[in-house]
C-alpha cells in the first residue's frame, strides 16, 4: 500500500512542480543562447531572472507540497484520504518521501542550471577555470579541510538532507496539530498559529544548544584579524564568550580564539525525526476531520 500511496502522490504533485523547474531551465537556455549571440541586455536580464528563479523554485516547490499536505489530509479531500484502508501513518510517510524528493530536485535543478551557465558562459578560458579551482583549494586550506574533502561533501549533503527534512517536519507537525478538533474553529489559522509557536520554541532551543552544548569550531585569528585556522573542539560557546568578554581580548585586538557552537547540527536531525514520528502518532490516534 505504501508504494501505491507514493505512486498517487507523485501523480498528483507531478502535474505542477516540474513546470516550475522548466521555467528555470528555459531561462538558463535563453541566457546561454543570447550570450553566444552577444545579445547583451537580454542575456543579462535572463541571467538575473534565472538566478531569482533558482531561489523561487525551491520556495514554490515547498509551498505547493505543504499546501498539498494540508488539502489532502485536512480539507474536503481528506474524506477520501482518511477512509483508505491503509495505516494512517503511511499517509504521512508517503507524502514526506515524495515531498523530500521534489524538494531535493528543486535544489539540484538550481545547482545544475548554475553549473551549466558557469561551464558554458563564465569559463571560456583555462585561466578562469584555474581561478575557480584555486579559490576552492584556498577555502579548503584555510578551513583545514584539504585532506578531508570527502567528509566535507558528506557534511554538506547531510546538511541539505537535514534542512529539507526539518522544514517538512516542522510544517507537517504544525498542520497536523493545528487541525486537531479543538482547533477546528480557527480554520487555516490553527496550523499557522501552531507553526509560529513551534518556530519560536525551536529557535529558543537552538540558541541554548548552540551556546551550551560542548561542541564547536574554534576559529583562530591573528592580531590583525586574519584567519589562522579552524578546528573542531569539545568546548561550549558560552564559556568562550564569557572569557572573551571578561578579558576584552577581541576589543583589544589580541587575537583571542573564538568558538562557534555547532551543537545544533546534532540536535536538528533529532528534532526532525522526533517531529515526524510525533506527527505520525497524532495522525494515527487523533485525526478528527472538520
Amino acid at each position: 500500500m505504501f508504494g501505491k500511496l507514493v505512486k498517487h502522490e507523485f501523480r498528483a504533485t507531478a502535474r505542477i512542480i516540474p513546470f516550475v523547474y522548466l521555467v528555470t531551465i528555459f531561462l538558463a537556455v535563453v541566457h546561454i543562447i543570447t550570450t553566444r549571440f552577444n545579445l547583451g541586455v537580454v542575456s543579462k536580464i535572463s541571467l538575473v531572472l534565472m538566478v531569482i528563479m533558482c531561489v523561487v523554485q525551491v520556495a514554490v516547490t515547498f509551498i505547493l507540497l505543504i499546501w498539498r499536505y494540508y488539502k489532502n489530509n485536512y480539507s474536503s479531500e481528506a474524506y477520501l484520504t482518511h477512509t483508505l484502508p491503509v495505516h494512517p501513518s503511511l499517509l504521512l510517510w508517503s507524502k514526506y518521501l515524495v515531498a523530500f524528493i521534489w524538494s531535493l530536485l528543486s535544489i539540484l535543478v538550481g545547482i545544475a542550471v548554475v553549473g551549466a551557465i558557469v561551464l558554458t558562459d563564465l569559463v571560456k578560458t583555462a585561466d578562469k577555470l584555474g581561478t575557480i579551482s584555486q579559490g576552492y583549494r584556498t577555502i579548503l586550506m584555510e578551513t583545514g579541510m584539504t585532506n578531508h574533502q570527502t567528509a566535507l561533501w558528506l557534511i554538506i549533503i547531510g546538511l541539505v538532507v537535514v534542512t529539507i527534512s526539518l522544514a517538512l517536519a516542522e510544517m507537517y507537525f504544525a498542520i497536523t496539530v493545528g487541525s486537531l478538533s479543538k482547533m477546528h474553529s480557527l480554520g487555516i489559522g490553527g496550523p499557522i498559529l501552531i507553526y509560529f509557536a513551534e518556530y519560536t520554541a525551536l529557535q529558543i532551543i537552538n540558541i541554548i544548544v548552540v551556546l551550551f552544548i560542548p561542541l564547536g569550531v574554534r576559529i583562530s585569528t591573528a592580531a590583525d584579524g586574519s584567519l589562522t585556522g579552524a578546528k573542531m573542539v569539545f568546548q561550549n560557546m558560552y564559556s568562550n564568550l564569557t572569557s572573551i568578554t571578561q578579558t576584552g581580548a577581541l576589543a583589544a585586538g589580541q587575537g583571542e580564539d573564538l568558538i562557534i557552537g555547532i551543537g545544533q547540527y546534532i540536535l536538528l536531525p533529532l528534532v526532525a525525526i522526533g517531529l515526524l514520528f510525533w506527527t505520525a502518532r497524532i495522525i494515527t490516534r487523533r485525526t478528527s476531520l472538520k
Binding site: A12, N72, T83
Partner: peptide, 29 residues
C-alpha cells in the same frame, strides 16, 4: 475501512482528477 464504502456530503476528489483517474485510484486501494 476496507469493508466500508463511505459517501460524504462533500466533494472529496481533487479537481484535476477525471473519472478514469478516480477509478484507477479506487482500483489501487
Amino acid at each position: 475501512k476496507a469493508i466500508t464504502s463511505y459517501l460524504p456530503e462533500k466533494t472529496y476528489l481533487s479537481g484535476w482528477m477525471r473519472p478514469i483517474d478516480a477509478f484507477d485510484y479506487f482500483a489501487d486501494f
